[in-house]
Amino acid sequence: MTVSQRGLGELDLSTHRAWDLSAENLLHRASGPEGLTFFTRPVTDLLPHPVPAVQVATPGARATAWLAHPHTFTILHRHLRGLLGAEVAYLAPTTDVLIAASAGAPELPALQNRLTTTHTPRLPGASLLSAIVHYVRGFPAVAG
């Protein structure tokens, strides 16, 4: 939910506390009887050959929301790094789609190009949506 600065004041919440509560809500929504739930499926139909990448979904929220807080991004990153068996790079061609790929995969630029041409970002000017993003101490960083 979007809340204005005034709305935060009416709730007696600082911006930082609201950010932390948002992270707690993501964790709560993804929690099940066996722990946190992440859904992944191989990215198979975007390139003519297999790609070491998965599309990620989470219950109750967009997977891209997990990149917005260092605590949730760290949890997601550790899980995907273990799943892929390599350092992870992220592609988010829209706010609804999150792709995690092996950061060293030679197919990564072709995958980025394909995603950029097949998805239209819903947020004008959202630069992260067309970039390869890496995890850096809990925060998303655009590859340079």
Rank of each mutant, 00 (worst) to 15 (best):
P42H: 11
R62D: 13
L111H: 08
L84T: 09
H134L: 15
A86N: 12
L123S: 08
L83D: 07
T74V: 05
R78G: 13
L47W: 03
V142R: 12
E24T: 10
A23Q: 05
D12H: 14
A131L: 04
A30D: 10
T44Q: 13
P106F: 00
G32H: 05
G125M: 07
L76G: 00
L46H: 07
A63P: 08
L115G: 01
G104N: 10
R41T: 06
H49S: 11
E10V: 03
V133A: 02
W66N: 04
L91D: 01
G82C: 06
L128W: 13
S127E: 12
H28A: 14
A30K: 08
H69G: 05
G104T: 08
L108A: 03
A143R: 15
R114L: 07
G144C: 02
E34C: 04
T120N: 07
D12E: 15
A23L: 05
H77S: 03
R122S: 10
A103S: 15
W66E: 04
L91N: 01
P48Y: 01
G104F: 09
A143V: 03
P33Y: 08
T72Q: 12
T120D: 11
A65Q: 13
L115W: 00
V51P: 08
T95G: 12
V136C: 01
T40D: 01
N113H: 15
P42D: 12
Y135W: 15
I75V: 14
T95F: 02
R78L: 14
M1S: 13
V51E: 05
L80G: 02
L98R: 09
G32F: 02
L67I: 06
L128N: 13
R62Y: 06
Y90I: 08
H49P: 01
S31C: 09
S4V: 01
S130L: 05
A65C: 11
T72M: 04
Y135K: 04
G138R: 05
H71R: 10
T94N: 08
L11R: 08
A101V: 12
P124V: 01
L129Q: 15
D12Q: 13
A68R: 14
F73L: 10
L26G: 08
L13Y: 01
G82I: 05
H77M: 06
G138M: 06
L108R: 05
H69T: 08
R114Y: 06
P42R: 11
Q5I: 11
R122K: 06
